[in-house]
């Protein structure tokens, strides 16, 4: 299935969980947060929350600003 990660299309196996996105990006879990289709997914729920085809996933972190 195809999911959109920070605006870019990625192929993930059907039934992939949110935790798989962090692996795709090669990111540690610390200092980042994930929203799927405009809703926050808590860190504790990453391993169990399935993604659906066409899901829009945003992975955010802190950058210089303000």
């Amino acid at each position: 299935m195809q999911v959109w990660i920070n605006g870019a299309a990625h192929e993930l196996p059907a039934g992939a969980r949110v935790a798989a996105v962090l692996d795709v990006l090669g990111l540690p879990g610390r200092g980042v947060a994930v929203a799927v289709d405009g809703e926050l997914v808590r860190r504790a729920d990453w391993p169990a929350t399935p993604l659906v085809d066409g899901a829009r996933v945003e992975v955010l972190t802190a950058v210089q600003g303000g």
Partner: peptide
């Protein structure tokens, strides 16, 4: 700090 999409270049 601001919150933005992660980018391998900027990191944390």
């Amino acid at each position: 700090v601001a919150m933005r999409r992660v980018d391998a270049a900027t990191g944390t």
